Amino acid sequence: MEENEPQTFDPVEPIQLEAGTCVHESAHSMLSSNAAEGVRSVLVVSSRMAMHVVEGGRLEVRFARHALLHPRLAVQVRR
């Protein structure tokens, strides 16, 4: 079995955009449930990613992922 070589990244020139410029923003939510009778919980997964230019032309990347197991939502989904 071949081993994967680690990825390397070459430095790039600073982005020529003003500080505070939003390059990308996205959000995604997913609701997962078991539709069988007696379902007791629902898993809600959401994620958000944002890329903004900061001082010096650096790119700031933020990513958040949240998972919530919520028994009350299961009753609503089942209806």
Rank of each mutant, 00 (worst) to 15 (best):
Ala27Thr: 09
Cys22Leu: 14
Asn34Ile: 05
His52Phe: 11
Ser26Leu: 10
Val53Ser: 03
Val77Trp: 03
Glu25Ile: 09
Val75Phe: 13
Glu2Phe: 04
Leu31Gly: 13
Met1Ser: 13
Val61Thr: 14
Asn34Cys: 15
Ala67His: 08
Ser33Leu: 01
Cys22Arg: 09
His28Asp: 12
Phe9Thr: 05
Arg72Cys: 07
His24Gly: 05
Ser26Glu: 15
Arg79Glu: 08
Gln7Met: 09
Ala50Asn: 07
Met51Gly: 05
Thr21Ala: 12
His70Gly: 00
Glu55Trp: 00
Glu25Pro: 02
Ala36Glu: 08
Ser46Phe: 09
Gly38Lys: 07
Met51Ile: 11
His52Trp: 06
Ser41Ala: 14
Ala74Gln: 05
Ala74Met: 03
Gly20His: 00
Leu17Phe: 12
Ser29Tyr: 04
Gly57Arg: 00
Arg58Ser: 08
Val39Leu: 03
Arg72Ile: 08
His28Ser: 08
Met51Thr: 07
Phe63Gly: 03
Ala50Leu: 08
Leu31Glu: 14
Ser32Ile: 10
Ser29Ala: 11
Leu31Asn: 15
Arg58Val: 11
Ser32Arg: 04
Ser47Ile: 06
His66Leu: 11
Glu55Val: 04
Leu69Cys: 12
Val12Gly: 01
Thr21Pro: 01
Glu37Asp: 13
Ala64Thr: 10
Arg72His: 12
Leu73Ile: 13
Thr21Arg: 05
His52Leu: 04
Met49Pro: 00
Ala19Val: 02
Arg48Ser: 11
Ala67Lys: 06
Gln7His: 02
Val39Lys: 04
Arg79Leu: 00
Arg65Ile: 08
Val23Gly: 01
Arg40Gly: 15
Ser32Leu: 10
Glu37Cys: 07
Arg40Trp: 09
Arg62Gln: 12
Glu2Met: 07
Val45Met: 11
Ala19Gly: 07
Arg62Asn: 11
Val54Ala: 09
Arg62Cys: 08
Gly20Lys: 03
Met1Asn: 10
Glu5Ser: 13
Glu37Ile: 09
Ser33Glu: 02
Val53Arg: 01
Val39Ser: 15
Val39Glu: 03
Val53Gln: 02
Gly56Arg: 00
